[in-house]
């Protein structure tokens, strides 16, 4: 009996060529074939995107007593793509106090996604 094959499509982000990647999977999402890539990096990207897509997130949090009302921050590591919006929503009302230095952790492992939230700009008391 032939296993039923399903195909997922991805756009490669490695370079401007933008290869249209196809990932064929069989039972239990086992990858059986990757097509459409023009280089090794493209093939690896397709597999990673299919198995565990992750994203770095950059956003702002509120700043109290600073020269500006918002502080830019980022995740210290990539988080699962499916949890990005939930993470942003969870941080929506966060306000921290100036001063802040670059790299300072402003929230520890929110939602347990394995990434801290760190400041990306120095902000003195304003």
């Amino acid at each position: 009996m032939t296993p039923s094959i399903s195909t997922a499509n991805y756009l490669c982000i490695g370079c401007p060529l933008g290869c249209r990647l196809e990932v064929d999977t069989a039972e239990e999402d086992r990858i059986v074939e990757i097509r459409g890539f023009s280089c090794k990096r493209g093939k690896e990207y397709a597999a990673q995107e299919h198995i565990d897509p992750r994203r770095n997130v950059a956003l702002t949090v509120g700043l109290r007593g600073g020269a500006l009302p918002r502080l830019p921050v980022k995740t210290s590591a990539a988080v699962p793509k499916a949890r990005v919006l939930a993470l942003c929503a969870a941080l929506r009302d966060l306000v921290i106090d100036a001063p802040v230095r670059v790299g300072q952790v402003v929230a520890v492992n929110p939602l347990g996604l394995g990434a801290d939230i760190v400041a990306t700009r120095e902000m003195g008391v304003g």
Partner: peptide
């Protein structure tokens, strides 16, 4: 926007 409530539908 503030608050988390309206985000549930997005997630």
């Amino acid at each position: 926007l503030t608050g988390v409530a309206q985000e549930a539908s997005h997630d």
